[in-house]
Design a protein around this nucleic acid. Structure first.
Length: 507
DNA sequence: ACGAATGAAAA
DNA sequence: TTTTCATTCGT
């Protein structure tokens, strides 16, 4: 059921460069775009909190003081490479002592961090015009059960935990962060990501939260018997490799007492699988294809592109619903035709109340791609307030006087951990959601884009994404799936223009 | 083998 | 409340 749709709101998010993903996925799913409008409620939603101030459009968050400084604002154009990379001084935080993290230590760490902020804006802003691609996490979380099982095999049967929102975020921006920081150290990436995360606009965090939920649901579907079971032993985690029964874990459950994942059984070792990670094109802005800047894309009015709200910028690329895109054979790219309609500067932010994408809404046509921010439905509509991480939570982002967002402890209003949450329950919940999702996906009606019906024969355990990505290879190309990509098009091609900031936009 | 981040889930 | 572990890969 469900209503659906909504494509409107997505513009907002896109601005953070995530839109490309949407487009990409939309293209994949859609094969051919069919126009269709969903109703969307409220496109112009916005948070009163920070949207009203136009000042932010052109003024970045004030960098404050001394040390750090502007990362963002100044940059007029890419040329401004942000030298502001904080690392100049060395990492303050890095100094922190290793090892034992007692809470106390942890705290000190935090403090230290607070004292030496390095970021003046979130990564989605700071890195928006860097060449490094943002990984397509949407595609990632939609890996099919088959692919997931393969991964398990590669790991020797060990079923890893699904990534949480932050891990997904870190992963998505890892390359960009490295570029921005000009360092290849993942510890730095983690630190920066950690600092950036709370600064990200609600839309972005919500998107990642949603992806995390999808990931959990798909993970649960692929590994129904999986149960997280951390080793109590102090052993440092992974070690070994196992040999031993490796695969025991997954399917059937643990034969012996040791169940699954974790524990003793084989854990680990990272195989650096190439993992299929898709890169977003646009956002990505490959330097290799500067070409976009010139293409005459229908971009949203640039004058509105600025900082959408304090600390956040704009669109690195506009997003739009898949349905609004058309494929231009000449350039082999999808072009959207009505992006501007919603670009009212910021008017388009998702309401904080809830408009959270739900699995159901996502898949349908609308999309996720769209950004995920589906209009109308709320999580509660579908699942009640059940899941804990439901972001419906009120995360209202707040900003300090400098325009920087302030992290707020999220309060999971609806449900807090109170009793009812017992593990198995949760598992069930995931499965339930997954099913709901599948069910919605399998309904041709309004819920799904007609264009997808032909391809997707949803089975109990699969969904159309399985099909869509089944032919995806690690290098980002698809095989055996001509119908998804016209001609030579591959996921790595740019589907959308990369937004190129103009001087005016930047200051 | 460790770190460095946030968050989910278990103990 | 505390601990493990998701990810990554240079040290």
């Amino acid at each position: 059921m469900v209503g659906m749709p909504s494509n409107a709101a997505h513009f907002e998010v896109d601005d953070y460069g995530l839109g490309a993903v949407a487009q990409h996925n939309a293209a994949v799913r859609k094969q051919e775009s069919s126009p269709r409008q969903n109703d969307v409620k409220g496109p112009g939603i916005h948070h009163g909190t920070y949207l009203d101030d136009d000042a932010f459009l052109h003024n970045p968050p004030t960098p404050r003081s001394t040390t750090e400084t502007e990362g963002v604002r100044t940059r007029s154009g890419r040329s401004t490479r942000r030298t502001d990379s904080p690392f100049s001084t060395g990492n303050a935080r890095g100094s922190k002592s290793p090892a034992a993290r007692s809470k106390k230590e942890k705290k000190s760490k935090v403090l230290e961090k607070a004292k030496t902020p390095k970021l003046t804006a979130p990564l989605s802003v700071l890195t928006k015009d860097l060449d490094a691609p943002v990984k397509d996490m949407d595609a990632w979380v939609h890996r099919s059960a088959a692919v997931r099982r393969e991964e398990v095999e590669k790991r020797h049967g060990y079923v890893t935990r699904p990534m949480n929102s932050f891990m997904l975020y870190r992963s998505a921006y890892a390359d960009r962060t490295k570029q921005w920081a000009t360092q290849n150290n993942h510890q730095v990436v983690s630190s920066v990501a950690g600092e950036s995360w709370p600064m990200e606009p609600e839309e972005v965090r919500n998107q990642f939260n949603e992806w995390a939920r999808i990931e959990r649901a798909n993970h649960a579907a692929a590994h129904p018997e999986y149960k997280f079971s951390p080793s109590k032993a102090t052993k440092k985690r992974k070690s070994e490799f196992s040999e031993d029964e490796d695969e025991a874990s997954d399917v059937d459950g643990d034969p012996d007492g040791e169940y699954r994942a974790g524990g003793r059984s084989a854990r680990q070792h990272r195989q650096r699988e190439p993992a299929e990670v898709f890169y977003l094109n646009d956002t990505v802005g490959f330097s290799s294809n500067p070409y976009y800047a010139q293409q005459g894309w229908n971009m949203p009015p640039q004058q509105h592109l600025g900082y959408g709200h304090p600390g956040h910028t704009l669109p690195s690329n506009a997003s739009f619903d898949a349905r609004s895109m058309t494929f231009d054979p000449q350039i082999k790219t999808f072009v959207h035709t009505n992006a501007h309609q919603q670009y009212s500067g910021y008017g388009a932010y998702i309401p904080q109340e809830t408009r959270i994408p739900t699995p159901n809404s996502q898949h349908g046509a609308q999309s996720l791609g769209g950004y995920g921010l589906p209009g109308q439905m709320t999580t509660n509509d579908l699942f009640g307030s059940s899941r804990t991480g439901t972001p419906a939570m009120a995360q209202q982002q707040q900003y300090n006087p400098y325009g920087q967002s302030v992290y707020q402890q999220q309060q999971y209003l609806p449900f807090q951990n109170n009793g009812g949450a017992n593990p198995s329950h949760q598992q069930q919940q995931y499965l339930y959601e997954h099913q709901q999702y599948l069910q919605a996906a399998s309904q041709p009606q309004a819920a799904i884009d007609p264009g997808l019906e032909g391809h997707a024969q949803f089975s109990a355990s699969e969904n159309h994404f399985d099909d869509a990505f089944a032919g995806l290879t690690s290098d980002g190309t698809f095989v055996n799936m001509p119908e998804y990509f016209p001609e030579s098009m591959s996921p790595n091609q740019t589907l959308a223009p990369r937004w190129e900031p103009s001087a005016a936009d930047l200051n």
